[in-house]
Amino acid sequence: MSYPKTKISALVITYNEMGYIEKCIESITFADEIIVVDSYSTDGTYEYLKIHPKVKVIQHPFANFTAQKSFALKQATNDWVLFLDADEVVPRKLREEIVETVNGNTEHVAFWFYRKFMFKNSVLNFSGWQTDKNYRLFRKSKAKFSDKKIVHETLNVDGTSGILKEKLTHYCYKSYEDYKSKMLKYGRLKAKEAFYRENRFNYFSLIFKPAWKFFHHYILRLGILDGKKGITISYLNALGDLERYRELKKLEKKNELAYYLVMP
């Protein structure tokens, strides 16, 4: 007896992703539907997606990563969801493993993917990313994004999880300015997250947390073995931490000013 093929919805969120999104979309055309939620790109991303024959693109304002991904998840019509970042690519062997997995009566409801990090077109072997893994394949009915984090979102899974053998390719570094912009954006979002949790700014964190981040990635996580690439990645990750605490200080000052303005 033959059974019907399990359908997969591929989901991506985008904002100004030309140079990344083309490879990503090409690698997921095996999915039964591709839905992209775009937060009003200005670099041609939306226009590219709009004319792509296999893509349904929806424009939706960006509040934070968790909210945007939760909105995208609601658009999927199939239970099995493959959720990628716009700078990620699914290699052929991983595509085959995904299809075999969802059609194999698996008991797991979600799967972790290990990622191979690319610095431009060369592999970043160390610098803290060698053991990185993320949820990328899961059943919509058994998972949802936690509203407790607004960046580096967390997936809450109701059931058991597995790990796929093949790695996802992550084109994390296109150029210095592009990666720097990402790290600063993440830093500001993490500051908002900390502010909402009522975490207070202190100068110890401002000075020592970025230094520790660099030391951790470059020395403890062997970024030194990645040569100049390791220095660059470790520095920019530390810069993101520095921005986090600078932004937290600004948010607290704004909040204090607003408080004094409304006092009788």
Results as ranks from 00 to 15, higher is better:
104 G>W: 05
110 A>M: 07
216 H>M: 05
205 S>G: 00
94 L>G: 08
239 L>M: 13
151 V>F: 07
87 D>S: 08
46 Y>E: 01
97 E>P: 10
5 K>P: 02
82 L>G: 01
226 D>N: 14
112 W>L: 13
263 M>H: 15
39 S>I: 08
193 E>C: 05
187 G>M: 10
245 Y>V: 04
27 S>Y: 09
4 P>S: 13
24 C>G: 03
176 Y>C: 03
247 E>Q: 07
252 E>V: 06
113 F>Q: 10
237 N>Y: 06
38 D>G: 09
15 Y>R: 15
139 R>G: 07
110 A>F: 04
6 T>S: 12
112 W>S: 04
161 S>R: 15
48 Y>W: 06
169 T>E: 15
225 L>A: 14
179 Y>P: 05
65 F>Q: 13
220 L>H: 01
31 A>D: 07
8 I>S: 07
130 Q>E: 15
123 V>N: 06
26 E>H: 12
251 L>H: 08
3 Y>R: 13
215 F>Q: 00
127 S>K: 11
135 Y>S: 01
35 I>G: 08
112 W>T: 02
254 K>A: 13
194 A>V: 01
14 T>L: 02
62 F>S: 05
149 K>W: 09
58 I>Q: 04
137 L>F: 08
175 S>L: 01
181 S>G: 08
135 Y>H: 12
36 V>A: 05
161 S>L: 15
22 E>L: 02
111 F>G: 00
141 S>Q: 05
216 H>A: 00
38 D>F: 03
247 E>L: 01
196 Y>K: 13
43 D>T: 01
8 I>D: 02
108 H>W: 04
186 Y>N: 12
145 F>R: 05
14 T>P: 07
46 Y>R: 00
62 F>V: 00
